[in-house]
């Protein structure tokens, strides 16, 4: 009988200090996330120095809680998987150095994980991945279509040329006077409004799977300003609905087109913006006529940053023999294609 595989994941790339332990790549036995969001709300966004300080305050507490939840001694763990990048350098450094210390203390293998690979592998905690597949990654820092022909192989077929979708959500929310983080507020407002305001969609050149959201963001800001100058009041609900519809239409249309062109078996949704209800609904609608493509959408708790996803990606990379030395550094600009194994 094959021995069970236990992987500890550590994630500190932004404003969540997270540690998880998963069994055989797919079963969560511990998943602890210490969010700093309340602290950063004061500043209207994540302040890197403050994020780094909070990670140091939280790291051993979160590690201990994860081991308690799992009821597993650290010696039983097969490998320590940690987010190497991308992310905030000072924040990443806490996870990387904690991971190295544990790996050294117990002579355990260290597996570096790309943060976006982690978001994609969150889906493996929901259902087994079927290749080839396409992942739509939408978060505060990323908007990408990633094609995978097999485990551990990532090909970016489209990405944003300016703002990430999540960034556009936050900026539009700020324009509408809503607190940080704005994404959930827009999503909620959008459901109360009607998409009655005409906003642009950036399709870019024929056949491109790239995205662009800066034009849309400016259009929203201009719409608000122009209305103010005319002394008119725009219903924030309608503006949110119109904005959200524009973002979702582009994301869903491109994802669907790519999924068909690449003949994929699955479309995986990944990243913090995957929590958006409008996006989830539009995707299931769009793929309802394509029973040969399975749409996989992780639960909300696995869409936002967490360490279970890092452990899930780490599990596969561990099996594939990916290892880091104790000289592993944080890599804030790590490209997913550099990470291919």
């Amino acid at each position: 009988m094959k021995k069970d595989q236990w992987i500890m994941g550590i994630e500190t790339s932004c404003d969540e200090t997270a540690v998880a332990i998963i069994k055989n790549g797919r079963e969560i036995v511990a998943n602890v996330v210490a969010s700093q969001i309340e602290s950063h709300k004061r500043f209207g966004g994540v302040v890197p120095e403050i994020a780094s300080r909070h990670h140091v305050e939280q790291i051993t507490i979160v590690l201990e809680e994860a081991l308690l939840q799992a009821g597993l001694p650290i010696q039983e763990v097969d490998a320590i998987a940690v987010t190497e990048g991308p992310g905030l350098v000072g924040a990443l450094l806490i996870g990387v150095n904690a991971a190295k210390a544990i790996a050294f203390a117990h002579n355990l293998p260290l597996v570096p994980v790309h943060h976006i690979a982690g978001h994609i592998y969150a889906n493996r905690l929901v259902t087994e991945m079927q290749f080839p597949l396409l992942a739509l990654v939408v978060s505060g820092g990323h908007t990408e279509l990633v094609f995978m022909k097999e485990h551990g192989y990532f090909e970016v077929i489209g990405e944003t040329r300016d703002d990430a979708a999540g960034e556009a959500f936050d900026k539009v929310a700020r324009t509408l006077g809503m607190p940080y983080p704005g994404g959930p507020h827009i999503d909620r407002l959008a459901h109360e409004g009607v998409p009655s305001i005409d906003l642009p969609r950036a399709w870019l050149e024929e056949g491109s799977y790239d995205f662009s959201f800066s034009g849309l963001k400016s259009a929203v800001i201009n719409t608000v300003h122009n209305a103010e100058q005319r002394g008119e009041k725009i219903k924030p609900e309608d503006l949110a609905a119109s904005f959200q519809e524009s973002v979702i239409e582009v994301l869903v249309t491109k994802a669907k087109k790519a999924a068909i062109e690449y003949g994929v078996k699955q479309l995986l949704l990944a990243g913090g913006v995957a929590a958006n209800k409008g996006l989830r609904a539009a995707l299931s609608q769009a793929f309802s006529n394509y029973p040969e493509i399975e749409l996989v959408v992780p639960p909300l708790s696995l869409c936002t940053d967490n360490a279970a996803m890092i452990a899930a990606a780490g599990s596969i990379m561990f099996e594939k023999g990916k290892r880091a030395e104790l000289s592993l550094n944080a890599n804030p600009g790590l490209e997913i294609e550099e990470y291919n194994h």
Partner: peptide, 12 residues
């Protein structure tokens, strides 16, 4: 922070 994180984690 690098030294303190390593020290805390090792001690823990």
């Amino acid at each position: 922070r690098i030294g303190v994180t390593i020290a805390k984690t090792l001690a823990w």
